[in-house]
Write a protein that binds this DNA or RNA. Structure first.
Length: 565
DNA sequence: AATATATGTGCCC
DNA sequence: TGGGCACCCTATAT
């Protein structure tokens, strides 16, 4: 047992007398009074206070002269000081005033009054009417984007859950990918290393492959040339090529051939991407190294290259969609880096993009590949408007709540691959908002050219945070991973027009699921998952989950201006 | 309904 | 450079 710290040894409920003073004599009273004032410096208290406190308690109980009241003094759960409280009041979270703003990390105000919350685009420099005279830029723009279309209208932003699977995974979801050709298939990875294949139009048609990885499936990518295979990278140190039909996986590499030799030597794979032009799969580990796997021979080629600080995680890799020679990496060393694939060696990065904290993700824009979008643990989304322009500093920094929490999958801002203007981005939100008395964590759609919150979507049935989000490459569909559950969102209008009513079923989750269970008295769902899932090598097909077409989940898709107070 | 628990990052020494 | 510890909105099982 670790030695108790002084702080924790303090009783949270302070016992005080109604009638003060009299024989109190001991130092304890003084302390109580101090507490009353501002909670002053508990630091000045004597070390033995705990026992003394108990003693006195007994004393006063036995005497019975002075009635005892236990006053629930305001004790802040965050800073442990008295005089104020932090935490949830109903569905509203009150910040500790002693801490810097939880949203923007600046001191002097709390989240409630943070200018970035009151006006989401606060401090964001809008996209300038660019008039660059760089010839390369001109050529690039003319070739690819003769006219820059407007961003997608709001109504095609998915805003309503129309199906979801309950606890499809037995651990939290870590990554999602849509199938490149089959519009209804969603792949999902989880912390346990399992890979899910879900036909979300048939809702209950899902398959889970549980014998591919031993722990966290960090990243996966489908092969667009052969859409039946997916490449996966895991913290177990292996990368695999998986056949989606059979679940048969081929190990491409194993960074821990000698098994567990202690935490300092165990290697894990994080970043992963496919470079079709070069016919390679790129993966990166937690020691800062990049590995190249030849897609034909399924062998690692060349030596690992240190591309980020030695010993630091390389969490993301992304190949430029148009320029096969360009690679973007990001990692725990607070950098995102652009590389030329033709001359990959340590220190040879073309550009280093510094961040204040860990970079959770870095992506080129999906259509032109000319923008860069990063998500960093400093609660900022950064945008570089053109890789052909100056990359000295980001074009915009958008403050957004997506803090690091060890129990959550890292948040990543994801492009909408269908948005011709390459300005619509989706990302889950950490801090909750009070929506009619419920604390919900919305999924935000942000126009990264202005920083404006275009839409915030949530569902009263989804009370958990949704750090993992992916937009469909062709349809107006959003997939979200929230804790162990997966959700599919569609725009209300579209969904209502296209789907016959009896297909508009909502699969309940979380609390609503439990309620439904009681209501229908069914015990047989995929909740007993662990049994099935742990059977190595077996696919688990679960039965039909709870369907409830009556409880239409409502979610709002509103512009930021109508936002609370 | 209180509590245990898993276990990443930053920062300090 | 490395161990130790703190840590603000978790989710879930008991």
């Amino acid at each position: 047992m670790p030695p108790q710290t002084r702080r924790t040894s303090f009783p949270k409920v302070v016992i005080e007398r109604d009638t003060d003073s009299e024989e109190s004599s001991s130092d304890e009273d003084e302390i109580d009074e101090e507490d009353d004032v501002v909670g002053e410096e508990e630091v000045t208290e004597p070390k033995a206070d705990e026992e003394e406190g108990e003693e006195e308690q007994e004393k006063s109980v036995t005497k019975k002269k002075t009635p005892i009241t236990i006053s629930l003094k305001k004790v802040c759960k965050v800073c442990k000081r008295t005089g104020h409280e932090a935490g949830f009041k109903g569905a509203t979270y009150i910040d500790c005033p002693m801490k810097p703003c939880f949203l923007c990390k600046m001191p002097g105000h709390t989240t409630m009054t943070c200018p970035h919350r009151v006006a989401t685009e606060y401090g964001v420099v809008p996209a300038p009417r660019r008039n660059t005279h760089r010839s390369l830029d001109y050529v690039f723009q003319r070739q690819l984007r003769p006219h820059i279309p407007k961003m997608k209208p709001e109504f095609v932003i998915p805003d309503q859950v129309n199906c979801a699977v309950i606890r499809y995974h037995s651990r939290r979801v870590t990554c999602l990918e849509f199938h490149p050709t089959n519009d209804n298939i969603l792949l999902s990875g989880d912390k346990k290393g399992q890979l899910g294949v879900w036909d979300f139009c048939k809702v209950y048609e899902k398959t889970v492959y549980s014998d591919i990885h031993g722990c966290i499936l960090n990243n996966m990518k489908l092969n667009p040339r052969n859409d039946g295979t997916v490449y996966t990278g895991s913290s177990d140190g292996t990368a695999c090529c998986v056949d989606l039909e059979t679940g048969i996986s081929l190990s491409l590499m194993n960074l821990n051939p000698n098994g567990w030799q202690g935490p300092s030597t165990w290697r894990m794979l994080y970043g992963l991407d496919i470079n079709l032009d070069k016919g390679v799969v790129l993966v990166a580990d937690n020691f800062g190294c990049l590995y190249t796997v030849d897609m034909r021979s399924n062998n690692v080629t060349g030596k690992p290259i240190l591309i980020h600080k030695k010993g630091s995680k390389v969490v993301g890799l992304h190949c430029n969609p148009l320029q096969p020679d360009l690679l973007l990496s990001c990692g725990n060393d607070h950098f995102a880096r652009i590389w030329d694939m033709r001359q990959l060696e340590t220190g040879s990065s073309l550009v280093d993009l510094p961040h204040k904290r860990v970079v959770n993700s870095a992506y080129f824009s999906p259509l032109t590949g000319s923008k860069i979008l990063t998500t960093s643990q400093d609660n900022r989304i950064r945008v570089w408007d053109s890789i052909f322009g100056s990359l000295d500093s980001p074009s915009r920094e958008i403050v957004h709540s997506h803090d690091f929490n060890r129990h959550l999958t890292a948040f990543r801002a994801e492009w909408d691959p269908k948005d011709q203007s390459e300005s619509l981005v989706v990302i889950g939100r950490y801090i909750s908002e009070n929506y009619n008395g419920a604390a919900l964590h919305p999924i935000d759609f942000i126009d990264i050219s202005t920083g404006q919150l275009v839409a915030e979507i949530m569902d009263p049935n989804i009370t958990t945070i949704s750090p993992v989000n992916k937009l469909h490459p062709r349809d107006d569909i959003l997939a979200s991973g929230s804790s162990r559950s997966l959700f599919i969102w569609r725009p209300k209008e579209k969904h209502e027009i296209e789907k016959p009513i009896d297909e508009r079923k909502i699969v309940l989750c979380g609390k609503a699921e439990k309620k439904a269970k009681r209501k229908f008295g069914d015990e047989s769902d995929c909740d007993s998952d662990d049994d099935g899932f742990t059977t190595k090598g077996k696919t688990v097909k679960s039965k039909q989950p709870y369907l409830d077409s009556t409880s239409t989940s409502k979610s709002k898709s509103k512009s930021k201006s109508s936002k609370k107070h």
